[in-house]
Design a binder for these strands. Sequence first.
DNA 1: TCGTTTTTCTAGAACGATTTAGAAGAACGA
DNA 2: TCGTTCTTCTAAATCGTTCTAGAAAAACGA
Lengths: 346, 346
Amino acid sequence: MPPGVTIKTVAQAVGVSPSTVSNAYNKPDQLSAALRERIMTAAQELGYAGPDASARALRSGRAGSVGVLFTDKLAYAFSDPYAVGFLAGLAEVAEDFATSLLLMPLSSSDTQAGTTAVQQAAIDAAAIFCVAGSHPALDTLKTRGVPMVSTDRGDHPELSWVAIDEEAAAAAIGRHLARLGHKDLVVLVDNAQAAGIQPVELTIEEVGYTDCELRIRGLRSAMPDARIRLISGGHNAIASGRAGAEWVLDSQDRPTAIVGLSDVLALGAMEAMQTRGLVPGRDLTVVGFDDIPVAESSGLTTIRQPIRDKGRAVGRILLDPATTERQILLATELVVRASSGPAPRD
Amino acid sequence: MPPGVTIKTVAQAVGVSPSTVSNAYNKPDQLSAALRERIMTAAQELGYAGPDASARALRSGRAGSVGVLFTDKLAYAFSDPYAVGFLAGLAEVAEDFATSLLLMPLSSSDTQAGTTAVQQAAIDAAAIFCVAGSHPALDTLKTRGVPMVSTDRGDHPELSWVAIDEEAAAAAIGRHLARLGHKDLVVLVDNAQAAGIQPVELTIEEVGYTDCELRIRGLRSAMPDARIRLISGGHNAIASGRAGAEWVLDSQDRPTAIVGLSDVLALGAMEAMQTRGLVPGRDLTVVGFDDIPVAESSGLTTIRQPIRDKGRAVGRILLDPATTERQILLATELVVRASSGPAPRD
DNA sequence: TCGTTTTTCTAGAACGATTTAGAAGAACGA
DNA sequence: TCGTTCTTCTAAATCGTTCTAGAAAAACGA
């Protein structure tokens, strides 16, 4: 587009008003087909590529994009097929409403950067994917009046969310393990601010993420007598799961079962076992959470949550005026596979 | 933000001009600290959350986001860790320049939808990730004057790109296979428009993607005497690789080697072999392309390409004025692992 | 004290579109 | 033929900023 070519230029060239050119693009039935044709060819000749997006957004009050907010680096976020599934579901709906997705990583360490990013982004709505409810960027969105839907259940009744009953799902795992006789557990948790490589043991307060916390509570409630340790090998990725599990497996104090708070963490644990010649489900039980596609072929016992539906539901609440529900609880299911077995008797 | 609260409202409340309020946000050193403080508190009281993004974009000519264009559904795009790596590298640079990423899937079937999406998106630049150079949306961007960088080498000398020498990399695979005595090959290719489940044999013309085509050419040039069949089990995903390989393995006419044009396709082939009790590298050779993280633990022979660097380089060309290079060729390397071995003598 | 520079602030014009209300002309029914 | 209804088009206001040029005030040097 040669600089300076606007809707006005085209209007003058054709000899009509700017409004008419605008209508030619946006409301084709408001003008005769012949005139529209003339306008379009003139636009082509002048090198005009259609109305400017920013100007349109300003005047019409619609940016044509929704923000997708998530914790931490993009690299970590999408290393989990779970996140990808969510995004795919959201994108599906977004496409129907001619809306693009604006990716906005919210670093948990540098909250300032994320907040200004959110401030400067032209978005009509925001999907909050696994972001702590306390992040200041969310306040910015609230004062700005941007509709939001979170993937975590919040406290406030006016908050919109699409979530699962984390606690109940985790309790299902707990009951399964209890039935198998397990009494000594290690839970692998995501630790976003982990910089080092050395796995660490955490308290439930240090875990931070609301959903992780709820899952731990659920486990504990179903296994009140079990010993449950929380270990993190870093952020949510296979390598972290492996690191955490290696640390546990190589210690003198092995548990009988390892629960990954996500499938990728659990898969990492399975890798660590394989390296050591241990068979999941026989020598040690491994359970995951999410049921990502590869969990099936790996034989991982896990909680299935309809992640793609989650994305779709979030999209609909944000974009489809016909959707009136504001808080949606999705069903989960314990999927038992080969990686879980009875605790060895000692 | 209560509707109607703008920079003007704040200005009136404080008793200064709108320009000054604008400066308070954008050029803090243009006004006294005391006044800035007063403006900020007034803004807070009025519920003003900072300058409107669309208005700012219109006036300043900077949208604060770059578009990421890629073929087909988001779901398929990010099922490949290769794509995720690229995005991560790009995001890294984008973050440094306070820029967000706008995801724009360009369906290859419905080119119209993608084109209007591109037309309506407020972006400063665009990263073209594995999109056929003929897509009409690219023309729209060109007339609009949006800077673009592609991940494929184009024909036009003014085009910017960050790529690898696809043909040479594939030729390296070809030489490796020739040295091992392979003369009968199946190449697993991505077929985006595949709707059915039934794998199909394609000609090189039907393959379509420029980079896939180049890789096939490279293979052929290094193995002029080999028989090379092109098979597709669907879009770029493990399941498609598995489907394609199963079809081949269960036929009467098995090749001695399978080359996946991406690692995910090759990994699918390895899965298919395992199911049938075949050992990659002994019974049949499997080679991939990309060297995604899981390739190492799977023992997959493949071409390593610095995918994250690719994303970073694209980001820098788009956003960093200090970067003057416009066409960057990255190095690749054949990584030989256990999945490739000598062809069985018959 | 007087010119000169620096700091601090402002008026008013863009930026490029969409929207509202309404005018001009064509088509229509009786 | 006349009033009415459509169709087709337009003028002018508006969206909420940032920018340019310059004014007023303060600080400075001699």
